[in-house]
Simulated scan of single mutants.
Amino acid sequence: MELPFTLPTYHDRLARVRKRMAGQAMDGLLLTMPDAVNWLTGVSSVGYLWPQALVISADDLQYVTRTTEEPGVLMHSWLPAPRLYDIAVEDAVEVIAETVRTLGLDQATVGVELDAFTLLPSTWDRLRALLPEVTWVDASLLVPEERLVKSPAEIGYQRQAAEMADHAMDVVLDAIRPGISETELAGIAAKALGEAGSEHAAIPPMVVSGERSALVHALAGRRTLSRGDVVCVEFAGVVHRYHAVLMRTAVVGRASGRVREVAECLERATEAAIAAAVPGAAAPAPDDACNAVLAELDLVRRRCHRIGYSLGVAYPPGWLEPMTLVAGDEHRLAPGMSFTIEPNLALPDEGFGLKMGETVLCTPDGPESLSRHGHGLYVV
């Protein structure tokens, strides 16, 4: 058995989740999201591409997955024998429903992650049909909310992941030159991350250049770089599925006056946002601080992304946790929370965009960036 945390850590997490369940009048919980399952059990695989579920009652639990996943479950989790199904001869949804009955939850109130890409509409319809006496309630945020404040061990993994991302950014920035393609740079980033020890990230390295830099949230294409191009790079280091995101912008050769002007403003806005991420601050505080700077150049309307979100354990296709640093989010920042600060800008009518962001930790002494890279425009 290989686990990134001690057995008491997992047992404590399960106890905390059960306390939340009781506080929300849930008799049971059915989880399908791989990050939630991993955080509670250690299970780490791509088995979530097929129906799976961790079913939890007040005093028992059972993990349901396909037979292919058995070796990984036994090696990478503390779970007792899982309930395995053979996809050639068994119906996965019927097996999950059978497990709910076995745990005595077929006439109970059961929480389920309705906001989950792992719970297909067809699966959800069939579960309700097979378990007509279950009272289902939305528990999409139950486990994620419990994960927002990280332990010292979790933060340690994110620090390692951030160091790997820093290393990869060094390598990518050094490789930027006229004639190289976005896909080649993305491959260089992936190779550097792997050499540093990073696991595969929930989102592959993103590289956009020239006019494509205004896309900001696009994957690398086949475009080759030329002098004067703006180049945006984003990726994450990963340790035991804990992510640390890093994004920076470079220019090949000399930047135009406008690019330099916008980049300087974005640098100050990023640093203002990080400085505002103090313990006790309302979640939107970094966004407000950022916008106050960007307003100097009428750049707030050029914002193309929320300024940040909590992150930790993640699997493809995404790495967001539920707290978002935007107006309307009622969270308050607290020591042990980790989140991105990324006030990205898109100016497609001017032919460029800028990415600037990283993982930030809220500590008792204030905010701490987990990257050693500065926030200015890199000229290569």
Rank of each mutant, 00 (worst) to 15 (best):
residue 213 S to I: 05
residue 314 A to N: 06
residue 96 I to S: 00
residue 104 G to C: 00
residue 313 V to I: 12
residue 205 P to S: 03
residue 241 R to A: 05
residue 216 V to I: 15
residue 122 S to F: 15
residue 248 R to Y: 03
residue 104 G to D: 01
residue 380 V to S: 13
residue 21 M to H: 08
residue 380 V to F: 11
residue 94 E to H: 00
residue 257 G to H: 10
residue 357 G to P: 02
residue 74 L to Y: 14
residue 61 L to Y: 10
residue 311 L to T: 09
residue 40 L to E: 01
residue 128 R to W: 10
residue 199 E to R: 07
residue 134 V to C: 07
residue 246 L to A: 13
residue 368 E to Q: 14
residue 369 S to E: 13
residue 150 K to C: 08
residue 137 V to Q: 09
residue 154 E to K: 12
residue 288 D to C: 02
residue 120 L to F: 11
residue 260 R to S: 15
residue 187 G to A: 08
residue 130 L to F: 05
residue 247 M to R: 06
residue 372 R to V: 05
residue 170 D to A: 11
residue 194 G to Q: 09
residue 249 T to R: 02
residue 132 P to C: 10
residue 322 P to M: 03
residue 211 E to W: 09
residue 53 A to Q: 00
residue 378 Y to A: 13
residue 137 V to R: 12
residue 251 V to M: 07
residue 260 R to I: 02
residue 87 I to W: 01
residue 74 L to M: 06
residue 77 S to R: 00
residue 91 D to R: 01
residue 231 V to K: 04
residue 262 V to S: 03
residue 189 A to D: 05
residue 199 E to A: 14
residue 379 V to R: 07
residue 332 R to E: 13
residue 64 V to E: 04
residue 192 A to P: 01
residue 88 A to C: 11
residue 356 M to N: 15
residue 13 R to P: 02
residue 213 S to W: 06
residue 173 L to Y: 07
residue 44 S to T: 03
residue 168 A to Q: 08
residue 179 G to M: 09
residue 218 A to C: 08
residue 293 V to K: 02
residue 181 S to H: 11
residue 72 G to S: 14
residue 135 T to H: 14
residue 132 P to S: 09
residue 222 R to H: 10
residue 18 R to F: 03
residue 11 H to E: 12
residue 357 G to W: 10
residue 193 L to K: 06
residue 345 L to D: 09
residue 218 A to V: 00
residue 170 D to W: 15
residue 279 P to Q: 01
residue 303 R to H: 06
residue 217 H to M: 15
residue 159 R to A: 12
residue 104 G to V: 01
residue 341 I to D: 05
residue 324 T to E: 13
residue 189 A to S: 06
residue 274 I to T: 06
residue 325 L to V: 13
residue 307 I to M: 12
residue 1 M to W: 04
residue 340 T to K: 05
residue 352 F to P: 03
residue 369 S to N: 11
residue 34 P to V: 11
residue 324 T to R: 12
residue 128 R to E: 14
residue 364 P to D: 10
residue 302 R to S: 05
residue 207 V to Y: 01
residue 343 P to H: 04
residue 55 V to T: 03
residue 290 C to W: 04
residue 1 M to L: 13
residue 110 V to S: 00
residue 130 L to C: 07
residue 366 G to Y: 03
residue 137 V to M: 04
residue 269 A to E: 08
residue 362 C to T: 14
residue 105 L to N: 01
residue 196 A to R: 05
residue 113 E to P: 11
residue 358 E to W: 13
residue 271 E to Q: 09
residue 4 P to D: 07
residue 231 V to N: 09
residue 206 M to K: 10
residue 188 I to M: 00
residue 31 L to P: 03
residue 277 A to M: 08
residue 323 M to E: 06
residue 200 H to R: 12
residue 238 V to F: 09
residue 111 G to Q: 01
residue 253 G to Q: 10
residue 189 A to W: 04
residue 68 T to Q: 08
residue 321 E to T: 11
